[in-house]
């Protein structure tokens, strides 16, 4: 990108949930950063720690979560992890906002959507509902909702799934935040609607220059949207790189597995990444060495002894693997 200015920097983020059955090690030493105006995709199978990572940034994990001491999330130079609730409240919905997977359950069923969109404006800009109305209508227009004046008094159950997610986007963008976290924003939607929502997000990104952390397990979405990709597995980032190198030349066997398990014909079904044999490791008892060893066809003794560190490679990316792949993967080049 043009001017690389860091907006968010996550360093050594490590967190666990104490439960009755033991400590769930949800994320382990996760580091990454997001530049201004950048769209970064976070991909990985279900349970790999994507949501916990995202919720850490906005401070919305279950209160039982325990962060490791040297975990650090700095946003515009401020440390978010040690921040007081009162200060964090000024950032949430104002500078960082978030949209979720299921727009129906994420909207309050008893409030009209106009009020729900206006809420962050009222909260952070101190405007009354009447005064924020114009802004709400404007936002609704921006996310492509026809006749916005008439929609203000509608309730979530009266709208379609796509409309609801547009409402969520409008709500998230109400205070012109500089970072939007989108946790699987299209997973719950029909394929055609998915494309529309992605379109809306891309257009808005161009207009406002907002940075987006896009969580998904749909590589089609990644290809369409992202500048940079973080691949997550077993609570760790195993590969990082710009979208072209990731698709054309994946270094980590897991990334390769993800790519080859995507059906050629996009949209034929939900692109669930389930076709890599085996399952994600149990976060209650992570193996010694590399988390991916049991499912990896390249695994050696070394892999079961020591965890590989995330190290930079010649492609301007990073990979955590003892045996990074060399060759260009022909199979998936036609995909991008």
């Amino acid at each position: 990108m043009k001017n690389r200015e860091k907006l968010l920097e996550v360093k050594h983020l490590q967190a666990c949930f104490p439960t009755q059955r033991g400590e769930v090690k949800a994320i382990n030493d996760v580091s990454f950063s997001i530049d201004k105006g950048e769209i970064v995709a976070l991909v990985g199978e279900s349970g790999s720690g994507k949501s916990v990572t995202a919720l850490s940034v906005i401070g919305l994990n279950t209160p039982s979560i325990k962060y490791e001491k040297n975990s650090d999330i700095s946003f515009k130079g401020k440390n978010l992890i040690s921040m007081k609730k009162k200060q964090m409240k000024k950032i949430r919905g104002n500078e960082i906002s978030m949209i979720f997977q299921d727009p129906l359950s994420s909207l309050n069923p008893l409030h009209p959507i106009g009020r729900q969109i206006a809420e962050p404006i009222q909260l952070h800009q101190g405007l009354s509902y009447i005064k924020s109305r114009e802004k709400v209508i404007d936002l609704l227009k921006k996310v492509g909702i026809p006749e916005p004046e008439k929609r203000l008094k509608d309730y979530p159950h009266q709208l379609s799934g796509g409309m609801r997610q547009r409402i969520m986007i409008a709500m998230a963008l109400a205070c012109n935040p500089s970072l939007l976290i989108a946790d699987e924003p299209t997973t719950a939607l029909d394929v055609t609607i998915q494309a529309q929502i992605l379109n809306v997000m891309r257009e808005l990104q161009k207009d406002t220059g907002i940075s987006i952390l896009l969580i998904t397990h749909d590589l089609g979405v990644v290809a369409e949207m992202a500048d940079r990709v973080l691949v997550m597995y077993g609570g760790e980032i195993v590969e990082e790189g710009d979208v072209f190198s990731i698709f054309q030349n994946p270094k980590h066997p897991y990334t390769e597995g993800l790519l080859s398990s995507v059906p050629k014909l996009r949209g034929a079904s939900e692109n669930r990444l389930r076709t890599i044999p085996g399952t994600v490791p149990n976060p209650l008892e992570l193996p010694k060495g590399c988390n991916f060893q049991t499912r990896c066809s390249y695994a050696t003794e070394q892999c079961s002894d020591l965890s590989p560190q995330l190290v930079s490679n010649e492609m301007n990316g990073k990979v955590a693997c003892w045996h990074p792949l060399e060759k260009v993967n022909k199979k998936v080049t036609n995909f991008v």
Binding site: K85, I91, N94, S97, F100, S105, E119, L123, H124, M171
Partner: peptide, 21 residues
């Protein structure tokens, strides 16, 4: 529920979340 998480994500604190949502 999810909409409570949404309410927190807007910057509301515990009491307003309980009261309004």
């Amino acid at each position: 529920s999810d909409y409570i998480r949404t309410a927190y994500s807007k910057g509301l604190l515990l009491w307003p979340v309980i009261w309004r949502h």
